[in-house]
Structure formats: structure tokens, C-alpha cells
């Protein structure tokens, strides 16, 4: 497994060359290993699509380059191991976003076609980033790939479901954003309040790296 030194106290490991089921399974296996058997001195790790960053306490690991080859071999072996399939979490979605038309036009589809394709895939949570708990979901049907807006909107509401290039994702907090918004969910992807009532602080994040997600279309009934 390839690695690079990343600053004085961290290593970046490359466990795959491209996205897909194989990269996803490797990433999950590596994360499970780092959670269950962290190497000595590990302070934090950050998984992404095809790479994982490992940061070390400089007092315990003064020169990460020295441990890199052994660690690379260990992660390589870990990545090859079988791992139980990821849980699937349902996300209710109302397909009412302002950019449905843009996605449809770009891909020469009807709006119903966009909705059908988007909700037909079980997505992989490849990584969380951009904002707390924001999932980068793949693999998006190539017939839905749509470039981001050249100039981002100044405010995209929390719960917005968007398409950015070849990914789909869910805005966890209101923020500026350039993805094409095709719908929204009432589910709280990030809910700091949840951590106050449940045992684990992690419960504030609805999704974790390695989860799978299914969008379930719902229609909103207008008030009687």
C-alpha cells in the first residue's frame, strides 16, 4: 500500500485507485481495524474515498516514516479481509428541490426519471466531510452526473439533498453550497441535541463512514 508523509506527525495511506465497491469494502475494513486495534500513538484518523490519514502523538511517534512500512503492510492485510456488509439506513426524501429541472435538462431526462434513478440506488457513505456529518454518497448513476453550479448559493438549508458532479449528499447544516438541490429530508443528519439524550456523543451524527443509505421518496400532504 502506497503512503506519503503528511506533515511532521502524520501519514496518508492510499488503499485504492478509484471509487467503487472494492474501495468501499477496503475503507470499512481499515476503519474497523483502526477503531478496534489503534496503533500506538495514534491520535486521530480520517478516512476518505481512497485514502486514510493517520495522525500520531509526536512524543510517542517522533518519526512516522519509521513505522510507515510496517503499518502499510498491516493495513494492506486488513483491507483484504472480508467484512460484514454495511447496515442500510433509510432516508425519507421529498423530491422538490429547485434544481430538479437543471439535473433533468443536463441529462435529457424527465423530472420523474431523475427521481426514479436517484431513489433506485443503495448508496455507500464513502466519507463524511464538508460540514459535520455531511455524507459523500456514491455511486451515483452516471445518468444523473451534473456539474456543480459555477457560483455556489450563499445558503443551502440543512436537510437539502444534492447532486455534485458524480456524488450525491445531504447538507447537514445550513451553509453555502454549489450542489444541485433535488429534494430535502426532514431527518436531522446532524443533531447536537440527540447527543444529550443518548449515551454516546456519536449519536449526533445520523450517518457513519461505511454505512449504506437508501432514499425513500415521500409526498407531502398539504394541510387540510
Amino acid at each position: 500500500m502506497k503512503w506519503t508523509l503528511y506533515g511532521p506527525d502524520a501519514l496518508l495511506f492510499h488503499f485504492a485507485d478509484k471509487l467503487g465497491d472494492a474501495a468501499f469494502a477496503k475503507g470499512r475494513a481499515i476503519v474497523a481495524e483502526l477503531e478496534n486495534h489503534p496503533p500506538p500513538g495514534l491520535t486521530e484518523f480520517v478516512p476518505a474515498f481512497t485514502t486514510v490519514l493517520l495522525e500520531f502523538d509526536p512524543k510517542q511517534v517522533p518519526d512516522p516514516v519509521r513505522i510507515a512500512p510496517d503499518l502499510a503492510a498491516r493495513l494492506e492485510a486488513t483491507a483484504a479481509a472480508e467484512i460484514a456488509s454495511a447496515p442500510i439506513k433509510d432516508i425519507p426524501v421529498v423530491y422538490d428541490g429547485p434544481d430538479l429541472e437543471r439535473v433533468a435538462q443536463h441529462n435529457r431526462l424527465s423530472i420523474d426519471g431523475v427521481i426514479a434513478l436517484h431513489s433506485a440506488t443503495i448508496y455507500k457513505v464513502y466519507m463524511l466531510g464538508f460540514s459535520p456529518g455531511f455524507p459523500y454518497l456514491g455511486d451515483l448513476d452516471p445518468r444523473l452526473h451534473t456539474p456543480r453550479w459555477p457560483s455556489p448559493r450563499t445558503r443551502v438549508p440543512a436537510g437539502s439533498i444534492g447532486i455534485g458532479g458524480e456524488h450525491t449528499g445531504i447538507y447537514s447544516v445550513a451553509s453555502p453550497g454549489g450542489w444541485n438541490i433535488i429534494g430535502h429530508t426532514a431527518l436531522k443528519i446532524l443533531d447536537p441535541g440527540r447527543a444529550k439524550t443518548e449515551a454516546s456523543e456519536e449519536s449526533m451524527f445520523y450517518l457513519r463512514h461505511g454505512d449504506r443509505v437508501r432514499f425513500v421518496g415521500v409526498t407531502v400532504k398539504s394541510n387540510p
Binding site: G7, A10, L12, F49, L53, M127, Y136
Partner: peptide, 9 residues
């Protein structure tokens, strides 16, 4: 590049 971890700095 394919998105990967960034650090402060």
C-alpha cells in the same frame, strides 16, 4: 484529485 483528508496548514 479524488478528495482526500486535509489538515490545518
Amino acid at each position: 484529485i479524488i478528495s482526500e483528508p486535509v489538515r490545518v496548514g
